[in-house]
Write a protein that binds this DNA or RNA. Structure first.
Lengths: 315, 315
DNA sequence: CAGGGTGTGTCCACACTTTGGATAAAGTCT
DNA sequence: AGACTTTATCCAAAGTGTGGACACACCCTG
């Protein structure tokens, strides 16, 4: 989030920065004098020249102060943060995600749990929760799955990776769950389905859209979903179906789920769902296609929600 | 979202801590004066600077006080809890764990995810990881399972509880994993087994005994175990088997696992294993009986390990 | 049941620290 | 010329520390 997009290396004078950050200029000078944050360059005539990085530091400082932390302590935190993450200066990290995924895959290949733990923990500093999942964990898992199918990895290695990446993803989700959610969504894997990662990936998207996510987990029968909808009145329901079933059987299963969910909008994703677009459409669900822009799902969901509101108002 | 605020170890002033914990600042000062809990660092000007660890201590203290314990005693318990693992002196807080479990069950009955989350988080202040699991999570899950079988809870509620308590337990385990482990143990659920909680409970015991725990997770086939043993050379293997099979079939399954594990000592627990003591004995495994003192398992394991060392020395 | 002792949360007075903002005087930019 | 910056100094409000005091609830004992 650069303040100005057009000028890459723009420099600002103090009044501009004050307007940009909402921190009065006397305070900016006081902070610099007292805590050394930030330390802008100077012109020959000793005018302060703030860079985007400086503005970013000030923003963080202000945010911490707004949260109630004392400015002196906040400055301490920001200073340590700045020292700890010089690589994340947006310069090189184009392939940082890839490198992180590589490190994870490598640890799995060497069957080294300690290295895997470390690789995963390091990945968790590479951006927002969703970014980490979409660009590190998911690609790593996909490659590990592929190599397992190709016989180059043992099932033990696949299990190990699932366990560690699953834990890390759950932790990410816990860290970003909104405190004051706008809406609620219930997520579950359909009966017989035990692969949970896609569900957590979906959860991260919903969280970013402002939903509170309630996860029922693997192997959730239709009755359980019906109960949840009746008790929680979620704004939406998300299902995951990875294991492929024959068309007839899948239609039967999915109908039971659609009935259980009732008029609440629902989304379904996963490898199995991908192959039954028309069926899902007929049952009133939204298909989250693999590789599709997740925003499309969001838009479709918004349409359904608006429809429901209109219906409710009309009735 | 917040980038990595948790990565920077911040320090807080007294009012921030008061807001964070809900304990008024005069009380914080009184607690420090009277019980020495916590003992924050000071600035040069003798302002108190609380670390995250201090906040954690205060949260625990408050949690115990809220449950009716006298602050002086609570301070005693917390101090023992902080100094070393064995907070064995649980004279009066006997019902604190029970109250916590009750709160969890109640939230599940009301199908209230927010209340459940809060109840679980509060429980996590009540002692060492193992204590929390053994005396809060496990009893709560058992009761929830019972009431579900009795038809008083829906399967959705059971799923919800599993999800939240599972996540909390994984977090506990992550927090206590030793950095410099003495030994390694590989833990897994046998093929077709998808109940994971017992495995994590076992993991917490092994961690307390100084092991590094590598979890392969649910539905782990014998081949995966063989690979893991070959790659990691663990000192022991732990299996979990909840789903009951007929004797013949179980014998066949278990034999394949025993073969896969080889000469490494192995333990098996869970409802299904309980019914096949002689079989397990014949295959050279150690049965972890339900309700049995876990130390017995540890002792049996120590015997096997000593035998192996003798053999290795003799050969 | 009365009375003394105890544990506990809260409050107070007084001195010190932190912090945002104000002012003044001189220099700089446009 | 007028708007903006810089430095330095000052100020007032809010926060904090210390030690003690006080009211209330509780327990035990006579």
């Amino acid at each position: 989030m650069k303040p100005v997009a057009h000028a890459a290396n723009a420099q600002y004078r103090i009044q501009t920065v004050a307007r940009l950050t909402g921190v009065p200029s006397p305070t900016l000078r006081a902070w610099e004098r007292r805590y050394g944050i930030p330390s802008p360059q100077r012109t020959e005539s000793s005018y302060r020249l703030y860079t985007d990085a400086d503005v970013e530091l000030i923003r963080r400082l202000k945010e911490l102060c707004d949260q109630g932390m004392a400015p002196s302590q906040a400055a301490d935190v920001v200073r340590r943060m700045a020292e700890n993450e010089p690589p994340a200066v947006d310069e090189l990290p184009t392939d940082a995600w890839q490198v992180a995924a590589e490190r994870i895959i490598d640890a799995v290949k060497r069957f080294d749990p300690s290295a895997l733990e470390m690789a995963v923990q390091r990945s968790m500093l590479l951006g927002s929760a969703r970014t980490i999942f979409d660009r590190v964990f998911a690609p790593a898992l996909r490659r590990i799955g592929d190599e397992w199918h190709a016989g180059q990895l043992s099932i033990a290695q696949e299990h190990l990776a699932s366990e560690y990446l699953g834990n890390a993803t759950r932790e990410l989700l816990r860290l970003v769950q909104p405190t004051a959610p706008l809406r609620t969504v219930v997520l579950a894997c359909i009966a017989g389905e035990y692969h949970v990662m896609a569900l957590y990936g979906t959860a991260l998207h919903f969280v970013q859209w402002g939903y509170r996510v309630v996860i029922l987990g693997v192997d959730t029968p239709p009755e359980a979903l019906a109960d949840s909808v009746a008790s929680l009145h979620p704004h939406a329901v998300g299902l995951s179906a990875t294991q492929v079933h024959p068309r007839e059987q899948f239609a039967q299963i999915l109908t039971r789920y659609a009935d259980a969910i009732g008029p609440t909008p629902w989304v379904i994703g996963g490898h199995a769902a991908n192959q039954h677009g028309p069926l899902i459409d007929r049952l009133g669900g939204i298909l989250a296609r693999q590789g599709q822009d997740p925003e499309a799902v969001r838009d479709a969901l918004e349409v359904r929600l608006r429809e429901r509101r209109v219906e409710a108002a009309g009735a």
